[in-house]
Nucleic acid binder design. Structure first.
Length: 513
DNA sequence: CGGTGCGGGTGCA
DNA sequence: TGCACCCGCACCG
């Protein structure tokens, strides 16, 4: 996934509100966690895009424009006391999209069993104090996506995870939950792997950096289940039975459904440190009625600040990684302070989504990445751009920064125009009928020239990306913490990962209201 | 029951 | 006028 910088390249020279958008022949891989100011173009038959799905909890927002679907971020459900799980992770559940359901979520006991806190919404204020917004626009040839704002909160759990939990109903035994979640994960990943070839790019990001759950690195002996839905956690206590259900065990017999999943991507075995021998859990001391209907969010994950690896007590605890059933990702999230400082640091230093110079989104596969298309800014201009964007994001509602932002954008636009290679589409507010798919005016007179791309490839960006890959390759096995960090950073928009081309000199016309 | 999309309506800048 | 947001409705799984 490649998030694009406003006006930083030919490929980003469209706005969701333009009367006409370029016709695209090469598309982006779907980005589940698109973040920052970015624009993506998906295939018209991309199922994820057609569903307007997102890892973020996005709700429909009425913008009174039937042609552009607008969604705003609901933030994330967090614990009111910000309790910390053994590994320093924090609760971040997916807010329900439905207002009614979301209200019911709030005030529920923290999923952390030993926490007295309550769930509350951590609202998204990533777009000048307002929630981050996503825009979707369909043409006959593509689905255009544009995001505005940088999420200022942790990612919620994946959609499939919350769906799985919901579908469980209430009062089920944890074992059932485990099986269901495992199946969900297996099926989801299976489907995702089959859905679209390019999806692999995204998978590479989330899985390689955050390998799938339940695939234990036996050498490391850790558990890679999520803190909320640890499957190992629900395994029987007795060693013999444990063996039977422990996927980490050599003698473990995988269920048929899961088998393909386990063996599907063995190379993605996690390398998390064995925090506390979390492979084995004793559930005999957990009463079946412990999970009340109203505690469907209740985690079997204790707050244990003095968590000591290897202690017998801790053996009964859930592992601390978070399974993202939607992406097959195991999140080893930042401790909250780490997260926030990291987040702020990222925002301050990178503002990746705008500059695209620091955050790489590995959802985009390198081999289908046409580097530089989004990084056509000359360094100086790019820095200036970052400055403006930076301020824009960090000081909510500061109009000055917004001016910088757009002034910079305008300057760059003008700069491109001066190259004489293409013309920016004027938002002339002429509203074309959607049926006018072949608008000669744009096709013949205002097309993008392909040589533009060649001329503006930013080698510096390319180098940085390679550097990243080098670091990544060198550490992916041994440094899971790094991946936690990288995962967060790279999953934000990275212009350098663009693979979008304007290979046609025509545009898809859309209709404004 | 909840996700999703649509659309009327309100308040604010 | 644009935007954020509330609400209700309909459809769907």
């Amino acid at each position: 996934m490649s998030c694009r910088v406003y006006s930083s390249s030919s490929s980003s020279d469209w706005d969701i509100n333009d009367s006409a958008v370029p016709r695209i022949n090469e598309f982006d891989a779907f980005s589940e966690w698109a973040d920052g100011h970015c624009r993506l173009v998906y295939r018209a038959d991309n199922e994820d895009a057609k569903r307007h799905s997102s890892g973020w909890a996005m709700r429909n927002t009425n913008n009174h424009n039937v042609h552009i679907l607008k969604k705003s971020c609901l933030g994330v459900l967090v614990c009111s006391v910000r309790c910390t799980l053994p590994t320093g992770e924090r609760v971040h559940l997916r807010p329900a999209i439905c207002d009614k359901a979301r209200k019911k979520q709030q005030g529920k006991p923290c999923p952390n069993r030993q926490c007295t806190g309550r769930l509350e919404i951590l609202a998204c204020r990533g777009h000048c104090g307002y929630p981050v917004t996503h825009f979707w626009r369909h043409t006959d040839h593509a689905i255009f996506f544009q995001a505005k704002g940088v999420h200022d909160h942790p990612r919620p759990e994946a959609k499939s995870t919350s769906e799985a939990r919901r579908s469980l109903g209430s009062g089920r035994r944890v074992r059932g939950l485990a099986v269901l979640l495992a199946k969900e994960a297996a099926l989801g990943n299976k489907l995702m792997s089959l859905r679209e070839p390019k999806r692999q790019c995204r998978e590479m990001t989330s899985r390689t950096l955050n390998p799938p759950p339940l695939i234990a690195d036996q050498d490391k002996g850790y558990c890679s289940c999520p803190p909320f839905e640890c499957i190992c956690n629900y395994q029987p206590v007795l060693p013999t039975t444990l063996q039977q259900y422990n996927p980490h065990s050599p003698s473990y017999q995988q269920p048929q459904v899961l088998d393909s999943y386990w063996t599907q991507e063995p190379a993605q075995a996690q390398s998390y440190p064995d925090v506390a021998g979390l492979n084995q859990y004793d559930f005999t001391n957990i009463p079946a009625d412990l999970f009340q209907p109203e505690e469907i969010f209740q985690l079997d994950q204790p707050i244990k600040p003095d968590f000591v690896a290897g202690s017998q007590h801790d053996l009964n605890r859930s592992p601390s990684t978070l399974l993202d059933l939607g992406s097959g990702t195991i999140h080893r999230e930042f401790k909250s302070e780490e997260y926030w400082s990291q987040n702020m640091t990222t925002m301050i230093n990178d503002d990746s989504n705008n500059s695209g110079s620091s955050r790489f989104n590995l959802s985009q596969s390198p081999d289908n990445t046409h580097l530089g298309l989004n990084n056509n800014l000359v360094p100086s201009a790019q820095n200036q751009y970052m400055e403006g964007a930076k301020i824009d994001e960090l000081t909510y509602g500061v109009q000055k920064s917004a001016q910088n932002y757009f002034q910079q954008t305008a300057m760059l636009d003008a700069d491109y125009k001066n190259q004489g290679n293409f013309e920016i589409i004027a938002d002339n507010k002429v509203y074309f009928d959607e049926s006018l798919q072949n608008f000669d005016g744009f096709q013949n007179g205002k097309g993008y020239k392909s040589n533009y791309q060649e001329k503006y490839i930013d080698l510096g960006q390319y180098a940085e990306y390679n550097n990243f890959l080098s670091v990544y390759d060198g550490n992916k096995i041994n440094d899971s913490a790094m991946f936690g960090d990288l995962d967060f950073r790279i999953n934000n928009c990275a212009p350098g990962a663009s693979n979008l081309h304007y290979s046609h000199d025509n545009f898809d016309l859309i209709t404004h209201q």
